[in-house]
Design a binder for these strands. Sequence first.
DNA 1: TTGAAAGCGTTACCAT
DNA 2: ATGGTAACGCTTTCAA
Lengths: 341, 341
Amino acid sequence: MATIEDVARAAGVSISTVSYALSGKRSISSDTKRRVEDAAATLHYAPRASARALAANRTEILAVTAPLHADTDPTAHMAFAMEVTIAARTRDYDTLLLVQDDALSGMKRSANSALADGIIVLDVAAHDERAKLARSISCPTVFIGVPENTDGLVCVDLDFESSIRQSIDALVEAGHTRIALIGHTRETLARESNYPLRIQREFARYAAARGLDAVIVSPPSDEAADALEILFREQPGTTGIVLSTANAVALLLTAALADRGLAVPRDVSVIAAGMTPVLSRTPLPFDALPLDPALTCPVAVDILVGLIEGTRPSSAVTLVPPVYQSRGTVASAAVPSGQAR
Amino acid sequence: MATIEDVARAAGVSISTVSYALSGKRSISSDTKRRVEDAAATLHYAPRASARALAANRTEILAVTAPLHADTDPTAHMAFAMEVTIAARTRDYDTLLLVQDDALSGMKRSANSALADGIIVLDVAAHDERAKLARSISCPTVFIGVPENTDGLVCVDLDFESSIRQSIDALVEAGHTRIALIGHTRETLARESNYPLRIQREFARYAAARGLDAVIVSPPSDEAADALEILFREQPGTTGIVLSTANAVALLLTAALADRGLAVPRDVSVIAAGMTPVLSRTPLPFDALPLDPALTCPVAVDILVGLIEGTRPSSAVTLVPPVYQSRGTVASAAVPSGQAR
DNA sequence: TTGAAAGCGTTACCAT
DNA sequence: ATGGTAACGCTTTCAA
């Protein structure tokens, strides 16, 4: 590996000139600049990362903590890590992956040893131990997800409330007035970050504001059939369903509706709001306002880089607007034919 | 952040004593050793990663390249990255993730700038451009997967041949003599690394050696029904199936068999060989000799660390023996009842 | 526009 | 058993 000194010698200039010529941090005569660049190219020179990091006090690395605990979908999870990595590269940062047990301890380690310039926190729980840690370290940190208490934290998430309002608006525009939300199971509500709760609240509030008949179903299990059973018992004649639940429920919903003699969108219109599609071949087969990692991760990385480079004012919580994806599962409300059993 | 000098001052010793006391690289009186450790603890001292890396010429980081191209399952893929990361931590290494476009260029970048001490190559294709690169750089590199030409490379993979032989042995022990392999589609054969081909070859060879009636099906699509159609046309009365194909085929196989009036294991015994189960809730519902990332990744990391630390002789290709997982889908061959349609 | 040299915080060699 | 210090390869300040 060639060093900066080799380049300097080859180009017949001083070390500092090489450094400046390559970094562009001060003006260099175009002549010597080319000589330096040529020498660097022929020697295959690349600055040694550790030397540069020590001198510049910057590693150009972001740490990504992803605990991956039991009730999160590892598939969706790694999608976030991927998107962060991709976004980071566009800003010339690499990413260090901290998983499992090491998610918390690694975050400490990284901060203490200045391994990374900043930290991205994934899979944020309502009461996340990494929140306290983030407040105690000086290393810039951005959460993708919103914990209960955001004091002193920088967070990025989808604007779930907006996704709910847009879902309801779409149903209303199509003429639906009896609608329902299929939310997460109660267990999930307890463990996950607080967005499922925020979603349910906003659904109730906004449906009422628009004068709709609306119910919320927190299914007892991941069985779509059970959820529908409850839904149509509580509110027969429902023609619009907003989905913000486990992927397992969503994937079997169409079949479960068919079992009741209901077709999508002939009898029932369906929209998925704030769900993360499984990474495999097929996206959810519904109109959707998804929590897409490709939406939130680049924003989070931008903010983090801003924090690191000291340019951006650190706003507390940034909510990214969802994007409506149409797949033809919302249609005009039909004349109520054969009430659901 | 406290530096080694702060610790030295607090403990009343020289910085070299601190360094040695903490690294244990030379004998220190237990008295001063404790004083140093106390000072380090109270000051929350941790060596600055970049300084240590520069001086010791070692970053304690492994780079992981994972291109994630179209026809690989991203789910399975990230499972490998995860397992590498976990294995690396047990050896005190962190992992840097290089994905997509950056998988190749990042590998260069990493090697040129000494970002990482070693490189793990994932998702290895038969003709992988990273093979050539690996030969040209001095950074220790280990492939998880085997490219066509392994000259000068260090590779780790499942012993697929053994998984096939064990599958056949299990079927023979249960009394099956008419067996079939459902392999990958021809498209996949062309693109992926060469293990699907090696599997088909070994299946043919070993089945013949054991005197069995055997056919190999390369399904035209990912439809399990199509595969079975061909299978039973080519060899009616087949009672043992070895599966080494796309997860999509495997997941729907039981249903497709049921459509033909065949139950597992009553009429047909099934074993999956060398397949990587999807990361989601359910593993494949068959007896299996899976390509489990938890099997190969730790081995690869161990070898890589050995290469880095210069202890281990670098054997070219290491094949990890598969582990048989029983799920009750292999049973005694019944008297041939009602030939399959 | 350029060069010299002082750090950056470790490790490890050479002394004692 | 311990201390002094060169070296690691770069960035950046200070001088010219």
